[in-house]
Design a protein around this nucleic acid. Sequence first.
DNA 1: TTGCTTTCTTAAGGCTTTCTTAAAAAGTTA
DNA 2: TAACTTTTTAAGAAAGCCTTAAGAAAGCAA
Lengths: 221, 221
Amino acid sequence: MKTLLVEDDPLLGQGIADALTYQSHLVEWVKTGLHALSFAHASQFDVIILDLGLPDMDGLDVLQQLRNDNVLTPVLILTARSTSGEKVTGLDRGADDYMVKPFDVPELMARLRALQRRESQQKSPIITHGNLEIDPANLSLSKNGEPISLSRHEYDLLLHMINRPTQVFSREALVDKLYNWDNDVSSNTVEVYVHHLRKKLGKHIIKTIRGIGYQLGSTSE
Amino acid sequence: MKTLLVEDDPLLGQGIADALTYQSHLVEWVKTGLHALSFAHASQFDVIILDLGLPDMDGLDVLQQLRNDNVLTPVLILTARSTSGEKVTGLDRGADDYMVKPFDVPELMARLRALQRRESQQKSPIITHGNLEIDPANLSLSKNGEPISLSRHEYDLLLHMINRPTQVFSREALVDKLYNWDNDVSSNTVEVYVHHLRKKLGKHIIKTIRGIGYQLGSTSE
DNA sequence: TTGCTTTCTTAAGGCTTTCTTAAAAAGTTA
DNA sequence: TAACTTTTTAAGAAAGCCTTAAGAAAGCAA
């Protein structure tokens, strides 16, 4: 899960970034509204965590700008502004959730999972596909009830594709999901991970759309 | 907006129902888990507001049951259970938002709007032509529901013609669409691709306008 | 820290599909 | 029929993808 964290406080920001990373998020952490805007446009995030008190502009304006520019990424506002009116304003400007500082980390994680689940049209908290089961809360995977261990990138790739089971992903889009922008991966990582997943989960788990990219396939042989 | 309110407390229930109605929701108010289940199955709601302390069963079980039964309606839990652990449990069982009583009515309304907004973002348009379906977002094509795979140039050619179904294209115009300017293709590529498309999609998919070029035809034989 | 294990990244060679070309066959027009 | 256009076929070239393997990096345990 690729997350844009917008938070100017260095300590708090580091804390959240660490917590997210620990939950195997891929985190891009920026400290100003302008950076937030440019990152949100440059790459496709699964969720944006937005502080409102930023040094250069108000977080609400960042949000509004994003929505104006048709960036539909779910946004969770995380702020010290705690009045009812402020919450209503935030939500009505286009946020999907609103949490007040000080906040509880597990609750933040659970709310992010809920946003993600809704976004990917998942019905239940446990994601299934054929005989596969994924529990995003535990980062675990099983096939026919047997647990299978995946490396972090294998897991990310699979989860991302399972969240949009009919979509075709270009290699570039997948690289964008798997890596931070300052990490230039110049070679065939995606092919290699696809190969690993096929080895572990069966040949047909991922289909190749030649000249275009990859698409989730079936779990049967 | 059609809302299912599940709340056994008469006073509080009435208050919420009134507030919702005032915001021009169409409210169905039930007081037990069993009623909640049967209503949620019988009709398509835009959102469900769920109390957890119900007389006949726990709200969490209602929620789990709904998700098991493939009811995707967004659920907002509204309860007195306020610990972090309880929130995490609620969200991870499949809720989309979680509010603690006593709560603020405007905030509830704003959260409902946020859920609704997210829900109503629709998916990509699909182009149809006769019995063909093209999903440009996924670069996929099917005929009578059967997926058909095209090579990149075949796909480009077809999509270009389908976007202008009545226009007649000269060979030169099509070459120009398929290739960069610095790519001098000196031979009969277009003819070859037309031939491929006819083979895959039926003779009449492309008509020959003799001496001029090609035009989209019909998908029937 | 050190050493051990797992995971990541890169590159190269082989394999498969698609592209391009050319030439023969078929069709159309005058 | 002659002249011309379009279709079909086939084969070598090019591009795209898969697989393997090895060194680098990261994570973990003592």
